[in-house]
């Protein structure tokens, strides 16, 4: 069983399972949207004293926090028991692009040492990349009213034009970062 689950899962397994998670959450009376948890965390930390945006009923979002706790556990289980080899098989084109950017050992693990190596935590530039990247995701997700799960999966499934606009935005931002900004940073 473990050997059967251990190789990387193909897209035609992952995509349908993500749809299954979305439908299960709908059936249980909720809706799929991970970035809402960031708002709940702000509210729990006392952000409601600074903005009405965080005056929310935290109890109504408890299920989502439990879902996220489960996803952390899912990552832990995958790492401990289902991933004997953490190498990611990349296309030759990607490996070459990364070499040109100065990223060595592309695909040796899930994340590049150049951004996520533990030594990045002791350099200003390394910390800035992590913090600013996170801030853009958090700010952008709330401004757009959802992230990949809320807009790209839930919203597009419900044929929402606003979600399509948001997903187009995700791609404009992503393409700008990868093709114009990253060559300047790295």
């Amino acid at each position: 069983m473990l050997e059967f689950l251990s190789p990387a899962w193909p897209w035609y397994v992952a995509g349908p399972l993500i749809a299954l998670v979305m439908f299960a959450l709908l059936y249980f009376g909720e809706n799929f949207g991970v970035s809402n948890n960031l708002r709940t965390m702000c509210a729990l930390a006392g952000a409601d004293r600074f903005s009405d945006f965080f005056k929310i009923d935290v109890k109504q979002q408890a299920w989502n926090l439990v879902f996220v706790a489960g996803s952390i556990l899912g990552g832990f289980i995958s790492y401990q028991f289902l991933t004997p080899d953490v190498a990611v098989v990349l296309s030759a084109a990607t490996t070459e692009r990364l070499a040109n950017l100065g990223f060595a050992n592309a695909g040796a693990g899930y994340l590049p040492q150049e951004i996520f190596g533990i030594e990045q935590l002791t350099s200003i530039s390394g910390l800035s990349v992590l913090l600013v990247g996170g801030m853009l995701v958090g700010f952008g997700a709330r401004y757009a009213g959802g992230c990949t799960s809320g807009h790209a999966i839930s919203g597009l499934s419900n044929l929402q034009i606003p979600s399509l606009i948001a997903v187009v935005g995700f791609f404009i931002g992503g393409l700008l970062m990868v093709h114009l900004i990253m060559p300047l940073i790295f």
Partner: peptide, 23 residues
Amino acid sequence: YLLGGILFGLGWALVGACPGPMF
């Protein structure tokens, strides 16, 4: 949706993770 989406996309590509994968 457009501006928020673009900011989100910039961050998503830089750190390679949207909120779900971060956790």
